[in-house]
């Protein structure tokens, strides 16, 4: 919109940005419109060329493609591959794109036909096992969270434009939760995945006294065995632990382990 961008004398290219969605609630994209205070600055920093939820104009090339949602149908693989072809940088936006999100909860049933029948009866409907984007295309950058945090997206976009290395916190949510001087939810009798979930959300849920469900996936080197131990010490069943571990898909492999030790719930179909 305005003239040439630059930072510390380095001329910068205003990136052409596209937003795309596969199977999702489209909430992560909406979060960008929820940037009321900074929306106009944001629009000055990038050139949005594709944003179906918000605009009619479309373009076919873009520097950065933000893709929300997970892959749950064959035509989405085609769309995703197409987006990848036209994008210099492909960003997985939100937990669905990074891990499969809540959608991948259906993978825990052995039987996809049962899933279809449960919702659509005998009406024919197409679906497949849920996958994150990285199962099909190269993902250059992941923005975690359900939903994503708009401040984080703004920081990441600014860093991309300026050419700074994008870094995610490697430590778990506990770090940010304590820095907010919250009461540990275990003290209050609530289960929480904060000790193993990647931070960066500023303890969004736990600061509201809601235990962490691990939407941002595991922290680097997360001590999952100890997490399980803690849940038991505080009197929470494997099922309660599993509800959280499997909710967004970031902890899928550990959820498998817990599930195999917890025979009451149906086992996840082994990936071929």
């Amino acid at each position: 919109m305005s003239g040439q961008l630059s930072y510390l004398g380095i001329p910068l290219v205003r990136p052409k940005v596209g937003f795309f969605e596969l199977s999702s609630c489209e909430g992560c994209q909406l979060q960008l419109l929820n940037n009321e205070a900074t929306l106009l600055d944001f629009l000055n920093l990038v050139e949005i060329v594709n944003f179906r939820e918000g605009m009619s104009e479309r373009a076919d090339t873009y520097d950065i493609a933000f893709v929300e949602g997970s892959v749950t149908r064959k035509d989405e693989i085609t769309r995703l591959t197409e987006i990848r072809k036209h994008a210099k940088i492909l960003v997985a936006l939100g937990s669905c794109a990074c891990f499969g999100g809540v959608n991948q909860l259906k993978n825990r049933f052995r039987d996809l036909d049962w899933v279809k029948k449960e919702v659509y009866g005998d009406f024919p409907i197409e679906t497949m096992e849920v996958h994150p984007l990285a199962d099909f295309v190269q993902v250059d950058l992941e923005i975690f969270g359900c939903p994503i945090k708009k401040e984080e997206v703004e920081r990441i976009v600014t860093d991309l434009v300026v050419g700074k290395t994008v870094r995610h916190p490697e430590y778990p949510v506990c770090m940010e939760c304590k820095a907010n001087e919250n009461i540990c939810l275990f003290e209050l009798g609530e289960p929480c995945l904060g000790p193993v979930t990647r931070a960066g959300c500023d303890a969004w849920c736990t600061s509201n006294r809601r235990g962490c469900w691990g939407c941002r996936g595991p922290a680097e080197g997360a001590n999952l065995n100890q997490m399980k131990e803690i849940m038991h010490i505080y009197g929470f069943s494997n099922e309660i632990l599993l509800d959280r571990l499997e909710c967004f898909g970031g902890f899928a492999s550990f959820a498998d382990t817990v599930r195999s030790q917890n025979k009451k719930t149906p086992a996840r179909k082994k990936k071929s």
């Binding site: 899933v115 449960e118 919702v119 409907i125 509800d243």
Partner: peptide, 19 residues
């Protein structure tokens, strides 16, 4: 694309439903 929320919930503890 359908996401099958009604099926996702089956077998889940009640506190999962609103979440």
């Amino acid at each position: 694309t359908p996401r099958f929320f009604e099926a996702l919930l089956v077998g889940k503890h009640w506190e999962n439903a609103p979440y």
